[in-house]
Simulated assay, not measured.
Amino acid sequence: MSKILIIEDDFSIGEMMSIYLYEDGYEVKRAENGGEGERLLRQFQPDAIILDVMLPDIDGIQLCANVRQTSNIPILMISAKSEVSDRVRGLQTGADDYLCKPFSMRELSARVQALLRRSHSFASAAAELSVASTAPSQAQTQPDPPMKITLDTEKRCLLVHGKVVETTFSEFEIMKLFWQNQGKVYSREELLNRVRGFDSYVTERAIDVHIANLRKKIETDPKEPKHIKTVWGVGYKFLLS
């Protein structure tokens, strides 16, 4: 049973989310402020966090940043703030998804399922990689060096220099499109259409944020990218070498 921590100060919304997710089969705990949320994070050790941006004691954006210093736990940020700048700021801070109030409980549940699915895939891939790296080699000769960048679409796993690199759901979808169509130039609108089904509030500005985050994860020098190239006036393309 997956464990969900809800950090939400509005009692009615918090209770509604708790009841709905409990009936979906999750173990749920709720905190009414950031301080209590940090305490439950240590004690409860949840599999995902639903975090409200506006809390009485600490800004949810800051709390998200605090969590990201020590953990890669999936975070779904919720807020009545629907401005593009607010959503981009949340994603830049480290949230995996952003849901604007008001929202349906069905959509909330679907977002949580998607985050947990990605997180479990990442954990499984990391475990398999760890086992493979420690297993004794049967070959008598030195193996070929691993490719710098590898994408496993079935396990939803991105590897750089043989190490698993965590990505958000939207980042992986963009990387998957690049990987399967290397050298093809994609406009921001085309990339937007690729991820819109998973993030209904994503914008062309958010696409730039996703690209910047991917460059930080796969490029030796993100300011001088060798793989995710900008095609000025058009969009982006991916080159493996």
Results as ranks from 00 to 15, higher is better:
1 M>G: 14
1 M>F: 06
2 S>D: 11
2 S>Q: 08
8 E>R: 06
11 F>R: 12
15 E>D: 13
17 M>H: 07
17 M>E: 12
21 L>A: 07
23 E>M: 09
24 D>K: 15
24 D>P: 05
24 D>Y: 06
27 E>P: 02
29 K>P: 00
29 K>C: 08
29 K>H: 08
30 R>S: 12
32 E>P: 00
32 E>D: 03
34 G>L: 04
34 G>V: 10
34 G>R: 08
36 E>I: 11
38 E>S: 03
40 L>W: 15
41 L>V: 06
43 Q>S: 13
44 F>H: 11
45 Q>K: 15
45 Q>N: 12
46 P>L: 02
49 I>T: 08
50 I>D: 00
52 D>S: 00
54 M>H: 14
56 P>G: 09
56 P>C: 07
57 D>V: 14
60 G>C: 09
65 A>P: 01
70 T>F: 11
73 I>R: 00
75 I>V: 12
75 I>W: 03
76 L>R: 03
78 I>M: 00
81 K>Q: 13
83 E>Q: 15
85 S>E: 14
85 S>H: 15
86 D>Y: 14
87 R>V: 14
87 R>H: 06
87 R>P: 15
88 V>S: 10
91 L>Q: 05
91 L>A: 02
93 T>Y: 05
93 T>C: 09
96 D>Y: 00
100 C>I: 15
102 P>N: 12
104 S>P: 01
110 A>C: 10
112 V>N: 04
114 A>R: 15
116 L>H: 01
116 L>R: 12
117 R>P: 03
117 R>C: 11
119 S>T: 06
121 S>V: 02
121 S>N: 09
121 S>F: 05
123 A>N: 12
123 A>P: 08
124 S>P: 00
126 A>C: 05
127 A>F: 05
128 E>T: 03
129 L>N: 05
129 L>D: 15
133 S>D: 08
133 S>K: 14
133 S>Y: 07
134 T>R: 06
135 A>H: 03
135 A>S: 13
135 A>K: 10
137 S>Q: 13
137 S>D: 08
137 S>W: 11
139 A>I: 13
139 A>C: 07
140 Q>M: 14
143 P>I: 10
144 D>F: 00
149 I>Y: 04
151 L>V: 15
154 E>V: 05
154 E>H: 05
155 K>R: 10
157 C>Q: 09
159 L>H: 03
159 L>C: 08
160 V>G: 02
161 H>Q: 04
165 V>Q: 09
167 T>E: 01
169 F>T: 12
170 S>T: 11
170 S>W: 10
174 I>T: 11
176 K>Q: 14
176 K>F: 01
176 K>C: 02
183 G>K: 02
183 G>I: 09
185 V>L: 08
187 S>R: 03
189 E>I: 09
192 L>Y: 11
194 R>L: 03
197 G>F: 04
198 F>A: 03
198 F>P: 00
198 F>M: 04
201 Y>Q: 10
202 V>Y: 08
202 V>K: 08
204 E>T: 15
205 R>C: 01
207 I>K: 10
208 D>N: 06
209 V>G: 01
210 H>Y: 12
210 H>D: 09
214 L>R: 14
217 K>R: 13
217 K>P: 02
218 I>H: 11
222 P>F: 04
226 K>Y: 02
228 I>C: 02
230 T>D: 10
231 V>C: 07
232 W>P: 04
233 G>V: 13
234 V>G: 02
239 L>I: 04
239 L>K: 11
239 L>M: 07
239 L>S: 13
240 L>T: 12
240 L>F: 07
